[in-house]
Nucleic acid binder design. Structure first.
Lengths: 346, 346
DNA sequence: ATTAGCATTCTTGACCCTGGAGTGCTAAAG
DNA sequence: CTTTAGCACTCCAGGGTCAAGAATGCTAAT
């Protein structure tokens, strides 16, 4: 054992070889097969020794005594770190993306199509989340009386995310129009966050005055007409059928599909792991910590940003033996494309 | 054989018994089991004779020589017709529905939650489609300049369906506002269809005049800002995980899931079978004619209507051995609830 | 018109067996 | 000290056989 340093040169090489052949074949890999495909002619016995070391160090696991080795989560993490990230997306994939996203210019639609595209080119589950985050710039609001006691509030952000909700309010249309005009004139272009803060301040200040306008605004504000925060997400999950090809048994498969149906959970998952600050693609190995049904599944995702605003996220969920390099470049490509398209369209 | 009349009294009884036990157990049912559970003490041999007749008439099928009989599509159709439709939904199910739909008042949200509810209480796939049909009454439109050459058009129907799209247009905001005011003042409450027709007429008429307002309106109209027709649907498919429990093999399961992911196909399917005119629940047996992957699956659906306007449809898709009675009452209950809730909220 | 009896057919699950792949250890070779 | 060859051992996967069970169709008796 190369005591001390966790992994030496030879170990690294063998480890990546194991990970790669396992990803390719799906079968536990043994010393024999490895020896054959290895560039430097190492004998199976040598490899066996190294493998034993790696197993001790926690990088490999044995399904049972006389089977080959399977990479552990640790191994995948290590493997992913090794990846250069230099690869670029194949012409074919770029073509698929271009075709699907042709002419799209608003966030929602981009997200919807993208989840599909991601599932197509990754052959796994493509997920996108659009959050109406507090950093979004307000384009305008619109209120419309729907019937007795009901008001429809439509809120549009600069990037084209539309959020509508029905409120229980009883205001005449003219008051609604006045309130909308007031907000649009004063706050167009503000971030949701800032707008809400300022609005709260003014409402506080002018509390005493029994201004009709401000009263309407206050009621709307209270009822959440102006929120477009984390709870206002739109989630797209596509390509669940790709999971059937995997080697899970029925039960696990069902649990997986169920989990994917719980959009809320998915949003939390992405939210928890995809840091707004980080630019690049992030790979999360060991999803079962958050979601037990996701044992042996990984998340490859990136935040969706326009300039410095985070509009949501892109992700692929697939088995640990996913094609990391390919998926990572795909996700990253799409994230960059998103920024580019949305930025220029403003 | 009771020659002539397709099915006699005894035949009918035995046929329904077969269908029911097959639905309950999922195994091909043989003469022996049937004889035991049958109220009038008929011997297995007698039953065998009848079964042979029914098989000749095309109501039963044999997986293989020495297995029991399985109902054919014909048998299910016959069985469903026998159903009284008198059953009412259990308290429990009503509770689930009430809880999920509490406080919902707009179509979209109703649809979204309903697809979930349907999948929950049917233990199958729940589907809802909201179409912005031409019969919808216009509540109002709103246009907003998004950036260079881009306009966001928001169209709200009386029932709360919101349709937004981005157009390639270059008009100043004031023109957009004027156009919106014009449309809202003149056409609020009209059906989309009528509004579009009238608008087309007026545009035609006033063609010569180079009215700035009408020019804006025309451009918007041309770009489809005012369409909310069949192509503008929102589809919700929920509960695909329920299919895993079925006895399909991997391949079929995957095909099924893929089909369900193709929302467009689903919409067409519902559209093809759910006639707007019919009031009640409709059961379609033999889905594979339209969608090969849907062999042995049935559709139980009803149009979603508010008054006389069709807003979309509710449906459950499940295996032929679904609980017809239960599912039918559930779908019908929801369809009625939809009408009730949406009607009163207007 | 029913039913009992019987030979026949076909699936299903249990069981056994063998081949192949892989491991770990020991001892020899570099 | 590192590498390798050899070998005994373990375990899974697949194939084959077998017996049990469930139904059937037919014939003959009621």
């Amino acid at each position: 054992m190369p005591s001390g340093s966790p992994i030496g040169d030879r170990e690294r090489e063998i480890l990546t070889a194991i990970v790669e052949t396992f990803i390719a074949t799906g079968d536990p890999v043994g010393s024999r097969t490895l020896a054959r495909s290895n560039r430097e002619g190492l004998s199976p016995a040598t490899i066996r020794n190294v493998m034993a070391d790696l197993a001790d160090a926690g990088y490999l696991e044995q399904p049972h005594t006389s089977a080959g080795r399977v990479p552990s989560s640790e191994a995948y993490r290590y493997y992913v770190e090794q990846l250069t990230g230099k690869a670029s997306l194949s012409q074919e994939d770029q073509g698929i993306i271009k075709d699907s996203l042709h002419g799209v210019s608003d966030v929602q639609e981009f997200m919807e199509r993208t989840s599909h595209v991601l599932s197509l080119i990754s052959h796994n589950v493509g997920i996108t989340v659009a959050v109406g985050g507090p950093k979004n710039a307000l384009e305008h609001v619109y209120f419309s009386r729907l019937g007795d006691q009901k008001v429809l509030a439509v809120l549009v952000t600069r990037s084209g995310l539309v959020r509508d909700r029905v409120l229980r309010l009883d205001l005449p249309q003219e008051d609604l129009d006045a309130a909308a005009r007031f907000i649009n004139e004063n706050f167009r272009g503000w971030t949701m966050e800032a707008m809400r803060a300022e609005l709260a301040r003014r409402l506080e200040q002018e509390r005493s005055e029994y201004d009709r306008l401000m009263k309407s605004v206050e009621q709307l504000y209270r009822q959440g007409a102006l929120t477009a925060d984390e709870t206002a997400q739109v989630v797209f999950v596509e390509g669940a059928s790709n999971l059937v090809t995997g080697e899970q048994d029925r039960q696990r498969l069902q649990e997986l599909l169920q989990t994917l149906e719980e959009k809320q959970k998915i949003v939390e998952l992405l939210g928890a792991y995809l840091d707004a600050k980080q630019e690049a693609v992030r790979v999360v190995i060991g999803l079962d910590e958050a979601l037990p049904s996701m044992r042996n599944f990984v998340l490859i995702g990136a935040p969706a940003r326009v300039g410095d605003d985070v509009m949501g996220s892109f992700a692929v969920i697939g088995p640990t033996r996913i094609d990391y390099q390919h998926t990572m470049t795909a996700v990253s490509y799409i994230a960059r494309l998103f920024d580019k398209i949305l930025n220029e369209s403003e």
